[in-house]
């Protein structure tokens, strides 16, 4: 069952960047890719529970701000040590300039 939650406006995230989005005790990361598409993943790195929102986005890769763990935020795929567990990703849609995330539909 879907649970679409409004995370932010499309202008709240810069191109090739991300923001943190907290909802009912959970934390997510919302990304805007260089080609202006939106993606969502869990907000914490799978290595040591660090908020990814402080990390650097280059193209489609988010780099953990702490230990250099890298993920492809489109698929959640861990790109090598020290991270070996993929990030969960969530479906995203844009409606009327708002970014919506289906937080009930995690994929790993």
């Amino acid at each position: 069952m879907s649970q679409w939650i409004e995370a932010c406006g499309v202008d709240d995230v810069e191109d090739e960047d991300l923001i943190r989005f907290d909802h009912e005790g959970r934390t997510f990361a919302i990304y805007r890719s260089p080609d202006a598409l939106f993606y969502a993943t869990d907000g914490l790195c799978t290595h040591e529970q660090v908020h990814l929102a402080d990390g650097l986005v280059m193209d489609h890769i988010i780099e953990c701000p702490k230990h250099n763990g890298r993920f492809d935020y489109r698929t959640g795929e861990a790109k090598g040590a020290p991270v070996c567990v993929n990030l969960k990703t969530y479906p995203v849609k844009v409606e009327d300039g708002r970014v919506l995330v289906d937080i009930a539909c995690a994929r790993r």
């Binding site: 660090v50 908020h51 402080d54 990390g55 650097l56 780099e63 701000p65 702490k66």
Partner: peptide
């Protein structure tokens, strides 16, 4: 505070 400098160091 926290990881405030992380992006700059990464760049």
């Amino acid at each position: 505070s926290g990881n405030a400098v992380a992006r700059h160091i990464s760049i």
